[in-house]
C-alpha cells in the first residue's frame, strides 16, 4: 500500500542549543517536502520526558536526529544522558525490533570544535549503525530531506495481484510445448503458479513479487537457453541473490545438445540439465529438500 508523504509521521528529536536555527530550518523544509513533522516541547520532570518520548517514537514512522556541537545537560539520570541521546536511544530500541522504522541521523557541520562528550556520542552512533539507519553528512538541508524522501519512496512497490504458491514456474513462449508437458505433471503433485514470458509484455515486477510469495522458483528452457540464462541472472539479482528466501532452479531440457553447458553457478541457485521425463520429479525433490531446510 503506497503512503503519501503526508501520512508519514516524522519525529524530529531534540537538538542541542547551538543548532536551533538549523533545526527550525529543517522543520520548515520537511513540511514543504510534504512530511507530517512533530517534536516534543516543555517537559516537567524525568517521568514525563521518558513517557512522552516513548509515546512519540511509538507513534512515528521515522525519527530524525540532528547532531550539533554540544552534548547538552543530563536530563535522564539512569544512566545519565542528555535529552537528544535519550531520544536517539529510544528510537534505536524501536528500530531494532521493527524493521520498518527508520532513523535518520544528520551531522551537517564539520567535526571541529565539537564538545568531547558529544564527539563520543557521535562516535558511538557511527559504530552502531544498522539496518534502516542512515547517517548523513549532507551539507544542504534540502539535499538531506531529498535523501529522506528517496529512502522512503524507494520502498513503495506497485500493486500486483499475487497468488501464493509452492512453485512459481517460468518459461519462454517459444518453449511452450515442452514446458506445458512438464507443468502438467508437476501440477499434479504441488501447487504451481506459471508465467509464460512473451515479448511485448512487462513482467519484470510481477516476477520479482510472485517469487517472493512462492516457496521455489523454477525457470525452464528447451530451445530458449539464450533467453533463460540472462533471465535467471537478472531475476536472481532482483530478488536478492544469496540472501533471497526463495531458491531458484534453472532447469534445461537435455534433448538439445547445445544446452549442456547452459548453467548458472551462483549461491541459492540450482542449475540442472535433465532429460524431460526427469524434470518434474527433480523439481519435486528440490522442493521437498527446500522445505526440510526451512
Amino acid at each position: 500500500m503506497n503512503k503519501s508523504f503526508r501520512d508519514i509521521r516524522v519525529f524530529l528529536a531534540k537538538t542541542s542549543a547551538d543548532i536551533t536555527n538549523l533545526e527550525k530550518m529543517l522543520t520548515k523544509v520537511l513540511l514543504r517536502a510534504g512530511f507530517n513533522v512533530f517534536t516534543l516541547q516543555n517537559f516537567d520532570n524525568q517521568d514525563t520526558i521518558v513517557q512522552k518520548t516513548e509515546i512519540a517514537i511509538q507513534n512515528s514512522d521515522c525519527s530524525i536526529h540532528l547532531m550539533g556541537k554540544n552534548y547538552g545537560e543530563n536530563i535522564v539520570f539512569a544512566p545519565p544522558m542528555s535529552l537528544p541521546e535519550f531520544q536517539f536511544e529510544t528510537a534505536r530500541i524501536r528500530n531494532q525490533h521493527e524493521t520498518d522504522f527508520k532513523i535518520f541521523v544528520w551531522q551537517p557541520e564539520s567535526e571541529i570544535d565539537i564538545e568531547q562528550r558529544q564527539k563520543k556520542f557521535i562516535h558511538r552512533i557511527r559504530n552502531s549503525i544498522h539496518h534502516n539507519m542512515i547517517f548523513s553528512n549532507q551539507e544542504s538541508v534540502v539535499a538531506f530531506v531529498e535523501d529522506i524522501r528517496a529512502m522512503i519512496s524507494n520502498e513503495n512497490l506497485s500493486n500486483i495481484e499475487l497468488k501464493p504458491s509452492d512453485i512459481f514456474f517460468m518459461y519462454n513462449e517459444l518453449d511452450n510445448d515442452s514446458a506445458s508437458e512438464t507443468l502438467e505433471l508437476l501440477s499434479d503433485i504441488v501447487k504451481v503458479e506459471k508465467l509464460k514470458v512473451e515479448q511485448n509484455t512487462n513482467y519484470e515486477e510481477l516476477v520479482v513479487q510472485q517469487i517472493g510469495c512462492s516457496k521455489l522458483a523454477v525457470i525452464y528452457f528447451e530451445q530458449m537457453a539464450d533467453w533463460a540464462l540472462p533471465f535467471v541472472q537478472q531475476v536472481w539479482k532482483k530478488i536478492g541473490g544469496a540472501s533471497s528466501k526463495t531458491p531458484l532452479v534453472l532447469i534445461g531440457n537435455a534433448n538439445l545438445n547445445g544446452n549442456r553447458n547452459k548453467i548458472f553457478d551462483a549461491p541459492n541457485v540450482t542449475s540442472l540439465i535433465l532429460a524431460p521425463e526427469l524434470i518434474p520429479l527433480e523439481i519435486k525433490v528440490l522442493f521437498d529438500k527446500n522445505l526440510e531446510n526451512q
Binding site: R126, I129, H131, M133, I134, S136, A150, G240, A242, A266
Partner: peptide
C-alpha cells in the same frame, strides 16, 4: 542518489553471499 549508492555498495556483497556492515556503507557514502 543516496539510496542508490547504498544499493550499489550493499547488494553485490549480499548477492555474492557476503556481507557489508551498515556503518561502513554509511561512511563510504
Amino acid at each position: 542518489k543516496r539510496h542508490e549508492l547504498q544499493q550499489a555498495i550493499e547488494e553485490p556483497a549480499l548477492l555474492a553471499g557476503g556481507k557489508i556492515s551498515k556503518r561502513l556503507t554509511e561512511l563510504l557514502i
